[in-house]
């Protein structure tokens, strides 16, 4: 077993444990940071996510959620720090680490001029699955998602939800240990969203780890074991939903989130918007 700086490179030999917890660490960020020029998108992020946990990763727009996912999945290099996947540094051994990861990117990017079957078969090959096995799994996933009828159509005409189903299938195809899901419910109908939520719980119970970025707080509240809130590139809260409510003395996760990430009076902003849209003059006229 190769060891570099105390990090183990063999993904099958996992004995990384969180401090004082009896669980294996699946995802670990050590001082992870990313800057774009003067803008610090993510600032020295330290995080350990044990195996089998669904970790909700929340934050307002531009907080650095997607940047974190991109660094953790090897899509971009961090300015400093490391991201470990099952103990493997994604920057040091990207191929080994990536084999263990399934990703649903926020951009929803896929090759639209391929059919779902062709796309999933391609993805299967990239993860070294046998062609027949990849095809079989692809067909099964598409059937389960209810888009088997469209499996031979180019995806150019697909709705956002249909594309999302293909993307989720692609992320699960190689049975990864860890899932990075960036807004996975985008465009999905209520039934499919329900299936996915249940599926995530099921996968977590089987030891899969899920890093779940979303703006839909109700879903995070229901699905996630733990919630990390990011604001301006920094972690401002980390705990389960009840802990966050307690910490902010709020009754709901939504209120807790607002308390932690917004310095503005949201009511005043709404009023100002309303004024701007309908016109102050008209409102002044009505008042008269």
């Amino acid at each position: 077993m190769d060891t570099t700086d105390g990090q183990r490179s063999d993904p099958t030999d996992l004995d990384f444990r969180t401090d004082g917890q009896d669980s294996v660490v699946a995802i670990e960020f050590r001082g992870l940071a990313k800057s774009f020029g003067d803008i610090e998108a993510v600032q020295s992020l330290d995080l350990k996510i044990p195996r089998g946990q669904i970790c909700g990763y929340l934050g307002p727009n531009g907080a650095g959620k997607t940047t974190t996912v991109k660094m953790a999945t090897g899509m971009i290099s961090p300015t400093s720090g490391t991201a470990l996947i099952n103990g493997i540094d994604i920057a040091g051994s990207p191929l080994k680490a990536k084999l263990m990861v399934g990703v649903v990117p926020e951009t929803g990017a896929l090759y639209e001029n391929l059919t779902p079957i062709e796309y999933l078969t391609l993805v299967g090959r990239l993860y070294h699955l046998e062609s027949d096995a990849a095809l079989e799994k692809a067909e099964e996933f598409l059937r389960l998602f209810g888009i088997a009828d469209s499996s031979e159509r180019m995806m150019t005409g697909f709705s956002r939800g249909m594309r999302q189903k293909v993307l989720i299938s692609a992320a699960l195809l190689h049975n990864p240990d860890i899932l990075f899901l960036d807004e996975p419910l985008a465009g999905l109908d209520a039934n499919t969203a329900l299936i996915l939520k249940e599926l995530l719980r099921e996968l977590a119970s089987r030891g899969k780890t899920v890093f779940y970025c979303s703006h839909i707080l109700e879903v995070v509240e229901k699905v996630c074991d733990r919630v990390v809130i990011l604001n301006r590139g920094e972690v401002v809260a980390d705990g389960d939903v009840d802990e966050l409510k307690e910490m902010t003395h709020r009754a709901s996760l939504e209120d807790a989130f607002t308390e932690l990430t917004s310095e503005d009076d949201l009511g005043a902003i709404v009023k100002a918007f309303s004024h701007s849209i309908t016109g102050r003059a008209r409102e002044a006229g009505n008042e008269q």
């Binding site: 990536k98 990703v103 990117p105 990017a109 090759y111 990239l126």
Partner: peptide, 11 residues
Amino acid sequence: DYDILAHRPVS
């Protein structure tokens, strides 16, 4: 296609 391939184990 970077968004499609970058997170996959492709050297």
